[in-house]
Amino acid sequence: MVQSMKIGDVASMPPLFPFQESFCPVEDLLKRELYPPLPLWERGDRAGCTIVWGKRIVEKLSELPMKEVLVRKFGPGELTLTEALIVWIGLEQRQGGWRWTELADLYPFVQKHRISLPEPLLSTLVGSEENWHRVEQFMQLSEPLRQLVSEEKLDLKTALRVKSIDPQAIEQLKPVLESLSYSERRILLRLFYEVVQRDRLDSPQSMDLASRLKDTPKPLEELYRIRHPSLHHLQETYHATVDTFLKGTGIKVTPPPYFEGTQFKVEFSFEKGSQLQRKALTLQKLSEKIDPVIETLVYGTE
């Protein structure tokens, strides 16, 4: 039955659920039609009457010059806990879905009370019953990773892959992570994790690495260099020989990607014969020097 109640009386009631409700701006609250009669539940136990949904609204309303609020009171036996949760989820009317942290709050409650939500509602929450395990996975993450995932700065799959990174190291990396794009962030964390695993870095060593990256102007490049020392060595060798030799000549020689293959590409442009002659002369000189470099880069011969 819908009835009007004093706001003060409603405000003194505890919320039924521990979940955080959506924020409702004050100006919206003044348009009463935007929220329904608040559901209250007299469970018949010692808890007394509880607010099923709308605790935040009541708190806000009590700051306004309003005296009463419409409520819908349910008596003992009129609701089950599952139905109450369905009401709560329904009244939230989320358009933009649920945050990971909210689901992580919901999940233990659902598990503890063995609540089985109807399929359409479950779909709005996690997609399907099986997807609850993703919430479980999220809950296994360290706090900084949880934060990154819930703020949609990192996907769950990558977070799970790198979940063994020391949380303090991730905290240390935060300024770096903030400065990167979404995909760069994924790459950096993945590389960081791989270096930690490969070099069996303990917590202080992981922190050192994070600190080093924080202090470097190009952290992703630096980490890539650490993760791929041999490839970096090949790139450096190439740069120190071919690139340096060709500097300022207007000729570009590109090695095969990742030095996989044997096809080097030459690029240059010219406007007249004398220019072409100069390029040809440079290339002639390069050809006399390049074989040992190719031997090292492509064939691994020292």
């Binding site: 490969r198 993760r227 041999s230 090949l234 996989e260 492509v298």
Partner: peptide
Amino acid sequence: LFEEFVPCRDGKYRYLQPI
């Protein structure tokens, strides 16, 4: 799996060619 691998022409990852 924490060795260095690079993508090859068939899309598979292998050790660096010189290696």
